[in-house]
């Protein structure tokens, strides 16, 4: 094929891809743009795309009038907390499944996966009532526990697929080289396992941040995370688009950026290693 036609072909692909990508991204872009408009400009007809009076007024108001910071903190505490707690339990489990496999290993892994398939509505009632009587409704502790449990199978599986790729030879070499179990962990295992642990953490923070079933059912808007906070904007009709956009942008920006960083691991994590 001639170079010129190759180049033309690439330009065509590039333009089609960019148009499609921008169309898919448009709702996010539109939200961000609207967050910088006045309320009047936000509902103007015809819509104003770039040439409007840019203002940061909405952010100031969302910040001042709502408890954005508290909800943000709640989201951070709940997503990071449940992920860290989950790691604490999942790492030893995945470790033992990967490095001391027995006849039952396969069964255990499959069973763990099956718990993830249990629909949340199936256990909503008892969990709600248990939480109610334990005073865990509307608490961060309660959500940390529930989200940790509901994501635990994914964490074990993700870590398992990473740990399994650490060659056994290397662990044996370390033992031949005279490393005690503690030093083997410190010098060999930890550095080799760290990337896998980091991506597991990242993906689970994202999942927990965006989790909405438990978050909406077990917390009220006033005490909840950003998910619940945003949901509270659905109540009044004829609400304010620019402020909704500002609040939305604040709620999704951190996690979209984290998501960009973790997109490669995401595939592996969410497919339980079935697609790499």
């Amino acid at each position: 094929m001639a170079r010129a036609s190759d180049n033309r072909h690439k330009l065509l692909v590039t333009s089609v891809a960019w148009v499609v990508a921008l169309a898919i991204f448009f709702p996010i872009l539109w939200t961000v743009l609207t967050s910088f408009k006045t309320e009047g400009a936000a509902v103007a007809i015809p819509p104003q795309f770039l040439f409007f009076d840019w203002t940061t007024q909405n952010y100031a108001e969302v910040w001042a009038r709502t408890d954005y910071l508290r909800h943000f903190t709640n989201s951070v505490v709940i997503s990071v907390g449940s992920s860290l707690l989950g790691l604490f339990i999942a790492i030893p489990a995945a470790w033992s499944l990967a490095f001391s496999p027995t006849r039952r290993t396969r069964g255990v892994l499959m069973w763990m996966l099956s718990t993830k398939m249990l629909p949340a509505v199936g256990v909503l009632v008892p969990i709600y009532l248990l939480f109610k009587s334990a005073g865990l409704l509307d608490t961060r502790t309660g959500l940390v526990i529930v989200l940790m449990l509901s994501n635990l199978p994914i964490m074990v599986w993700m870590l398992f697929t990473y740990f399994k790729e650490i060659p056994r030879d290397i662990l044996e070499a370390a033992r031949m080289d005279g490393a005690t179990p503690g030093r083997e962990l410190l010098y060999i295992l930890a550095p080799m396992a760290l990337p896998g642990i980091a991506s597991t953490l990242l993906l689970n923070v994202i999942l927990a941040w965006n989790e909405s079933f438990w978050t909406l059912n077990l917390t009220a808007a006033s005490t909840g995370s950003l998910t619940a906070f945003i949901a509270s904007f659905s109540a009044p009709e004829g609400l304010f688009y620019a402020k909704l956009s500002a609040a939305s942008t604040l709620a999704i920006a951190p996690i979209v950026v984290l998501g960009w960083l973790s997109q490669k691991q995401l595939v592996r994590g969410l497919t339980f290693g079935a697609v790499k």
Partner: peptide, 25 residues
């Protein structure tokens, strides 16, 4: 960049996406 643009919606929390679609679209 195209990839980043395309994957972004997956990271938008469901309540935000629902409200944005409902009201602004």
């Amino acid at each position: 960049i195209v990839r980043l643009l395309v994957v972004s919606p997956f990271f938008v929390m469901p309540t935000v996406s629902a409200l944005v679609w409902k009201n602004m679209f």
